[in-house]
Amino acid sequence: MAHDVLVIGGGPAGLSAALNVRARGRSVLVVSNPPEENPLWRAERVDNYIGLPGVSGGELLTAMRRHAEDAGAEFRQGKVLNAVHMGDTWYVSVDSDMENAPAVILAAGISRGKKFPGEAEFLGRGVSYCATCDGMLYRNKPVAVLGYSDSAQHEADFLAGIGCSVTYFDRPKDCVISGKDRVESVTCGGETVPVEGVFLLRPTMAPTDIFPGLAVENGHVAVDGKMATNLPGLFAAGDCTGGPLQVSKAAGEGLVAGQSAAAYAAALARKNK
């Protein structure tokens, strides 16, 4: 099912954006990790969000999500892997499915950690970011899972369930992926394991990996006053656009991005009538 706006990220920026898309009468789908994997969820006390002193991060996220749901925003849990713009539409790969919308709001926070040596070189030749998408290619073969989220173990269990011999590395910091034409081994923390596939399961991918050609400045997504990026129909809000990394800033940028994306989708709808 197509939506007017697709929001990537279920934190304050993404939820604020979704709420404001609905306030403009447009449909919106929010794609995100489980709320419990958001860094804000683990905050015991948030004292600088105006009007709600002393709430926990989990309480704040729960209230924000409920507000967006009550306004009619739709949600699905999943990992966005890539996106392509064709005509007036963005086609966004979510796990093994495809979602589409004329406007997209990137609000997935910041990608923590640099690529490992060999990661980019072997992408598609043994390196994958989604076990449920690509796992069948490695059925009954040895694989490694580099897990950086609470849900990563579930993907590792899926691989084991289809016959893979799984070596699990829990949040490794220093890894090297090696091989000739394809992945042949991975080394993490001094331990080398022969494998045919390496699944890097990070909560958030780098924006430029999802959106090739996306302009960045000082490592952050470049946006204008309407939170528009250099790519048509793509807006961004929250931590991915730079500091300060605060809930109030994220929610405010989400409001602007939501209004801008809704207006963009409405303009396209009028043009294509």
Rank of each mutant, 00 (worst) to 15 (best):
M136S: 10
P117A: 03
A266P: 08
D174S: 09
S128L: 06
S151H: 06
E191D: 15
I162S: 00
A269I: 02
S96Q: 10
A228L: 04
A237F: 13
S149R: 13
V84P: 06
V84M: 03
I50R: 10
L6Y: 03
G9R: 02
R202T: 15
G126M: 08
N20S: 01
T132C: 12
A250L: 00
K114S: 14
Y138N: 04
K114H: 15
G9K: 06
P232Q: 07
S93V: 04
E196M: 11
A266Y: 05
I50M: 15
I177R: 11
M64V: 00
I8P: 03
T89K: 06
P207R: 08
A101P: 00
G238V: 06
K173Q: 13
M86G: 05
R66P: 09
R202C: 07
S32E: 10
N230I: 02
T204H: 03
E74Q: 14
V7W: 05
W90E: 10
C240V: 12
V216L: 14
S151P: 14
C240W: 05
E119R: 01
G25C: 01
A266Q: 05
S260L: 02
E99C: 05
G135F: 08
V186K: 04
S27D: 02
G189Q: 00
K226C: 04
A269F: 07
L52R: 14
V127E: 11
V183M: 08
R112D: 14
E74S: 09
D134H: 15
E191F: 10
A262K: 00
V198T: 09
M136L: 10
A107K: 00
V31A: 04
N230D: 02
T241G: 00
H67G: 07
K114A: 15
G109C: 06
I50K: 08
K79N: 15
N100V: 10
G54R: 12
A265K: 00
R202A: 15
K114Y: 13
G72L: 09
N48E: 13
A120H: 09
A108K: 11
S56K: 02
I105H: 01
L60E: 06
L268C: 00
P212Q: 11
L6H: 00
I110H: 08
N82D: 15
Q246V: 11
I162K: 01
P194C: 13
Q77P: 14
T241K: 10
F158W: 14
I8V: 13
G124S: 12
F75E: 00
G78S: 11
L200H: 08
A71E: 03
G225L: 08
P117N: 01
D95Y: 01
K115W: 04
V28D: 03
R171Y: 08
L29S: 00
Y91F: 15
V195D: 06
F122I: 00
E155R: 05
T229S: 03
S165L: 12
I210M: 10
L200C: 12
P35I: 03
P102M: 01
A23N: 11
N140P: 02
G87F: 01
V55W: 14
R139G: 04
A222R: 14
D224P: 09
S260F: 00
M64F: 14
A206I: 06
F211S: 02
K180D: 11
M98V: 10
V186Y: 03
Y138H: 07
G163Y: 15
R42T: 09
N82E: 15
E184Q: 09
